[in-house]
Design a protein around this nucleic acid. Structure first.
Length: 424
RNA sequence: GGAGGGGUGGCAGAGUGGUCGAAUGCACUGGUCUUGAAAACCAGCGUGCCCUCGCGGGCACCGGGGGUUCGAAUCCCUCCCCCUCCGCCA
C-alpha cells in the first residue's frame, strides 16, 4: 500500500508510476483523491456528532450523581435523533473507508528513480555478466536427460503420486538438494542473516500482507477446510513475522534467512519452459529478508544483491544481473534485480534469484513500524531476495559441469556438503 | 477432540455500567540533589485518524467482530488466541 499522503501531495508522481508500470492511465489517482476527500468529510461530520453525544452522556452522568433524575430523563430524550444520525454516519464512514481502501489496494508502488522506464523485458537493463560460459567439445545434454541418466530425480513417479511438477529427488540428487540448502544457509549465516524456520501454511491476513491476496490468488494452493494457504515463498510467512508490531530501532536492521519448500500452482504456464526442473509446483528455496530503516534500504538492496551473487560465484556458475524495468518489476516493488544463471545444456538464462526493495509498501500493509530515537513511529522498509532457488541452480550445475564421459563434476565448495565430488 | 480458566498500556497488575485512555508498581525520558554515580524526590511517558497555518481541539481503540444502553474495559452474542487437566498423537 502506498502512502496516502504521497498521493495527496504528489498525485502526478503516482500517475506517472502507474503509467510506467503499464497499469493504466493514472485516473485511479483521481478516484483516490475524490474518495479521500469524501471520507474525510463524512468522518468530520461523524466525529462532530459523536462529540455532541459524548457531551450529553457526560452531563447525564453528572445529573444522576446529583440525584436530578428528572433533568437526566429530559436529556436522555434528546439523544434519540442524534443516535440515529450517528448510526447513519457510521455506515457512511465505513463505506467511505472501505471504498478508499479498495482503491488503495490497486495503487502500485512507485519505482525508484534509478529504474529504467519500459514495458517489456527488452527494457530490462543487463547490468553485469560474470563468469565464463562453458565451452563443450561435445554435445551437452539438458539437465532432464542428465537427471534421468544418473537417476537423480523421478518425474514420472512424482506425477503418479502427486502430479506433474512434483518430482522425487533420488539418491545423489536428493543429497545434492540437501547440500545446497545447507550451503546456502551457512553462507547466509556468515553474511549476518539469522536463520528461521517458518510455517509452510499461512492465513489470509498474512497472504494479504505480502500482496498475494487479493489479486494473485491463483498463485497459491489453498487448504479451504482450514482457511489456509500453502506458501509460494518464505517471503510470505517471514515478512509477516513482525506484522502489527512496532520494532525497537536498536534491533534494525533485522536480517533473516529461511529455507522452505515453495508451492506454486503456476496456472496457465505451459510450453517448453516447463521441462525438467525449469518450472515446478514444489521447489526448495532459501530466502533472505531484511527489515531496515528507510534511509538504509537501498544500501541494503545492494548488499543483499551481492550476498546472492556471491553464492553463484562460489558455485562457479556464469550469471548475469538484470535491473528490471518499470513494466516488468511487479506491482509491489520499488526496485528489483533478477539474477539469471547460464544453463549450458539448454543454452539459455534461467532466473534463480529476484531481489527487491519494497520500501514501505509491504510494511504499510502489514503495519510494521519502528520508532526512530525520540521521533514518531515510521514504517520500516522491507527487502527480500532468493539466496537461492534450488531447481534451476541444480539444472545449471548439472548442465555446465557435465563431462564428455557423461559424469558431472561438482564445484569444490559443495564437496564437504555432499560427501562426494562428482556424479557418475 | 472433551472440561475448566484467562486475554487491560513496553512489562507486571487494578478496575465488573457514568468525573476511565484507564489506578499502582517496574521499565523508559527529562529535571532537582551529587565531585561523579546510585538512591531519593519532581515531571513526562500508548496507537491511529480527523479539524487547524499554528497554538490547540476532537474521535476511536482495554484480543477481533456484532449487540444492549443516554453512557461499556465492565453486561449479552460470536469468533480468535493463550493457560491447566483429560484424550489422541510425530
Amino acid at each position: 500500500m502506498l502512502d496516502l499522503q504521497l498521493i495527496r501531495n504528489h498525485p502526478e508522481r503516482v500517475r506517472e508510476a502507474i503509467r510506467h508500470k503499464g497499469l493504466g492511465d493514472g485516473a485511479l489517482v483521481d478516484d483516490v483523491l475524490e474518495r479521500d476527500a469524501h471520507r474525510r468529510k463524512v468522518l468530520t461530520d461523524l466525529q462532530d456528532a459523536q462529540a455532541r453525544s459524548n457531551r450529553i452522556s457526560k452531563d447525564i452522568g453528572a445529573l444522576m450523581r446529583e440525584g436530578k433524575k428528572d433533568e437526566a430523563q429530559e436529556r436522555i430524550a434528546e439523544t434519540g435523533r442524534l443516535k440515529e444520525r450517528i448510526k447513519e454516519l457510521e455506515d457512511e464512514a465505513r463505506e467511505a473507508e472501505e471504498a478508499l481502501d479498495r482503491l488503495m489496494l490497486d495503487v502500485p508502488n512507485v519505482p525508484h528513480e534509478s529504474v529504467p522506464v519500459g514495458q517489456t523485458p527488452e527494457h530490462n537493463a543487463v547490468v553485469e555478466e560474470d563468469g565464463d560460459k562453458p565451452d563443450f567439445n561435445f554435445e551437452p545434454l539438458p539437465h532432464w536427460e542428465l537427471l534421468e541418466r544418473h537417476e537423480l530425480a523421478d518425474f514420472e513417479r512424482g506425477a503418479k503420486v502427486t502430479g506433474a511438477g512434483f518430482p522425487f529427488y533420488m539418491g545423489r540428487g536428493a543429497k545434492l538438494q540437501r547440500a545446497l540448502v545447507h550451503f546456502f544457509l551457512d553462507q547466509a549465516a556468515d553474511a549476518g542473516y539469522h536463520e528461521v524456520q517458518a510455517p509452510l501454511m499461512v492465513n489470509a491476513d498474512s497472504a494479504r500482507g505480502t500482496g498475494q491476496l487479493p489479486d494473485k490468488e491463483d498463485l497459491m494452493y489453498e487448504v479451504p477446510r482450514d482457511d489456509l494457504y500453502l506458501i509460494p515463498t518464505a517471503e510470505v510467512p517471514v515478512s509477516n513475522l513482525y506484522r502489527d508490531e512496532i520494532l525497537d530501532p536498536d534491533t534494525l536492521p533485522i536480517k533473516l534467512c529461511a529455507y522452505t519448500p515453495c508451492f506454486r500452482r503456476e496456472a496457465g504456464s505451459y510450453g517448453k519452459d516447463v521441462r525438467g526442473l525449469n518450472r515446478l509446483h514444489q521447489f526448495d528455496k532459501v530466502e533472505l529478508l531484511q527489515f531496515v530503516t528507510p534511509e538504509s534500504s537501498y544500501a541494503a538492496l545492494e548488499e543483499m544483491r551481492s550476498d546472492a551473487e556471491r553464492l553463484l560465484r562460489l558455485l562457479d556458475l556464469p550469471y548475469r544481473r538484470l535491473l528490471m524495468c518499470t513494466g516488468d518489476m511487479g506491482f509491489t516493488q520499488a526496485k528489483k534485480y533478477d539474477l539469471e544463471v547460464w544453463s549450458g545444456g539448454q543454452e539459455r538464462w534461467l532466473e534463480v534469484s529476484s531481489i527487491s526493495n519494497f520500501e514501505a509498501f509491504q510494511a504499510r500493509r502489514m503495519q510494521i513500524r519502528y520508532r526512530p530515537d525520540g521521533g514518531k513511529t515510521d514504517f520500516v522498509h522491507t527487502l527480500n531476495g532468493s539466496g537461492l532457488a534450488l531447481p534451476r541452480v541444480v539444472a545449471a550445475l548439472l548442465e555446465n559441469n557435465q563431462q564428455a564421459d557423461g559424469s558431472i563434476r561438482l564445484p569444490e565448495v559443495l564437496h564437504q556438503y555432499t560427501g562426494f565430488d562428482q556424479i557418475g
